[in-house]
Each structure stands twice: as C-alpha cells, then as structure tokens.
Amino acid sequence: MTSPESSPALSKGRSLTRTVSSKTIFSNVMTGLVVTCAILALIPLVALLYYVITKGIVRISPQLFTQLPPPPFPRDHPQFNSGGFGNAVVGTFMTVGIASLISIPFGILASIYLSEFARDTKLANAINFLTNVLSGVPSIVMGVFAYGLIVVKTRSYSAVAAGVAIAVLMLPTIVRTSTEALESVPNNLRQASVGLGASSYQTVLRVILPAAIPAIITGIILAIARAAGETAPVLFTALFNNFWNWDPWRPTATLAVLVYNYAITPFANWQELAWAAALVLVTMVLVANILARWIVRRR
C-alpha cells in the first residue's frame, strides 16, 4: 500500500491544548450573530404587542362592544371617548360564522377522503398538492373571486360574500390539520372496528373521527382566529357598515376592516378605536394559540 507518508503531517505533533485561534474567534462571532438574529426577530413582536396593548387598552370598556361607531370628534370634544364598535363585533362573528359553516364540513369531509379512502393514491397526492397551492393563493385574490362570484351577481356587498372568501382561505388549513390528525390515528383502531363488522362510514364516524377530534379542533381554532383578522378578502366583499346589520345579504362591518378604515383617517377618536379593535384581534389570536397549545399538550 502506498503510504501517505510523503505528504506533510497534518495533525501529529500538534498541541492538544486550547488556544485562541482564528477558528475560535470565528465560532464566537457566528454564535453572536445568530443570537443577534433571534433578538432582532423578537424586537418587532415585543414592540408590536407593547403598543397594541398600551394604545388599545385606553378604550377597552363594555360600551365598546355595545355601541355604534361615533362620528369623528376633535380631541377636546366632550364626546371624544363615546361610541364603540358593537356592529363590527357582530359582523366579524357573522362573516367568520358563515365561513366556518362552509369550510369546516367541507374541509373535514375532504380530509376523510384523503386519509381514509384514498391515502397514498395518485388522486390524494394531487389533492394534497392542490391544497398547498390553494393555501398559497393571496388572500386578496380570494376577495376578488368572491366579488366576481357573489357581489356582482347579487348586486350587493354582503357578509355571505365575505364568508365565502374567508371560507376558501380557511379551507387549506382545515384540510391539512384534519388530514394529519386522521392519519395519526393508529391503524389497529381501524382494524378493530372493521373486524367487528363496522362499515367504513361507521368506522370513520364512530371510531376514527372521535379519536382525532382534539387535533382537528386545534386546527379549526387556529384557522378561525386567523380568519377573524383577515382584512383583504373582506375589504370589498362585506365592505363596511356604520350601523347595526343582522342581514347576511347586506354590507357588514368587521373588526379587521374597521382597523384599516379608521387607521387611515386623520380623526383621533377613530384612530383610538382602530387600536382598540387591533387589541381585540390580537387577544383573540393569542388566546387561540395558547388554547391550541393547551389542547395539544393535554393529549
């Protein structure tokens, strides 16, 4: 065997002791850099939460949820602190409710097909792929879609149109989390049920779905929290409404659009309401995330 002796010795005779070399410096610099990255990533979150809470909390009171938006007032006006956005809270529930009514059954049934009847087939792979593509479609395009599909045809902005746009937006999240949840149900449960003579729908509805339900609910909670904060698809589907509205076929106020509409105005009392609405939305997101973590951990 030809020995590598001709080449200069690499490691022999080197000291084993620790020395401050350019390599140690490099390592320390790099470690410092990634720690800086983590800090840089957290600064916006902390700053954002801080401002939303301190600026939003000023206006938090029961009247916020029961009264209609006030007209614009200057800061020294006696009624500066009056009014609320009760109609937008109702509208948010209405649009997200309609969206949930459409997307939850749609999503769960589709995920049952994907995980129980077609797992690993070409069709299922294609649908999974399309689901991921759908989740990448910008939310504003969903709004454009619902505008063309419903607003144009019914000749009116409406909570239904917004609900459809948001439903399409929620759909991929629900399909993905539910499929994952169903697929993680152990196979022996399936076999046990089938072995007892249960038909496939009985197996799915009585055995598989109940076993997967906590994880499915987690996904739905996160999807709803996210949907409530979505503005772009609602902007020109539900439009806005300064008054109470209970009719799903008419224009409706939502919290998210209220934040946008009031933020871009020059009126201080409206801007304050925008911050308060932002606080409500962020609180919902926070609660949903913590709740979801709690459900996952409890299992």
Partner: peptide, 11 residues
C-alpha cells in the same frame, strides 16, 4: 406569524 396583517399596518 399569527398577528393579523392589518395590525402590522397599524403599528
């Protein structure tokens, strides 16, 4: 990732 876009805009 979960904070609504419109809140980022406001901030």
């Amino acid at each position: 990732a979960a904070i609504p876009s419109v809140v980022y805009g406001l901030w």
